[in-house]
């Protein structure tokens, strides 16, 4: 998938990933990669600032916890506001894609 499309959907990808459970930054990259069958690769340069931005907006919250490798990692978790926002974005996304589908199907 081209990068430009990805940019606008980064928030959606992060929030959706976190809706499935808490994760640290690296974990989020891996989860997105897995869930998209290696189609979506989120770059660090986009991911970490985005996490910070979402955190400042109060959609996710962070906590330092011991990771699988027993090293301290910053775990992110969805907040109530984040859950609401995710539902909203998901709905918008579905409407958007449906409209585009219809448009493309129209001959």
């Amino acid at each position: 998938m081209p990068r430009e499309t990805l940019q606008g959907t980064l928030d959606l990808l992060i929030l959706k990933t976190l809706a499935r459970g808490t994760a640290h930054g690296y974990g989020i990259t891996c989860a997105i990669l897995n869930a998209s069958q290696n189609q979506l690769r989120v770059e660090e340069g986009s991911l970490y600032p985005a996490l910070r931005r979402l955190e400042s907006a109060g959609l996710i919250k962070a906590e330092w916890k011991a990771s699988e490798s027993n090293r301290r990692a910053r775990y992110y978790e969805l907040t109530r506001a984040g859950r609401k926002q995710l539902a909203q974005i998901e709905k918008e996304w579905r409407t958007h894609t449906a409209v585009i589908e219809d448009f493309l199907a129209f001959e």
Binding site: E44, G45, P49, R74
Partner: peptide, 20 residues
């Protein structure tokens, strides 16, 4: 620390650390 953790997971691979 967050960046360091990521680098440790990916064996040192990371973008432009300063910029990020």
């Amino acid at each position: 620390e967050e960046i360091e953790f990521h680098r440790a997971q990916t064996a040192g691979f990371f973008g432009n650390t300063g910029l990020i």
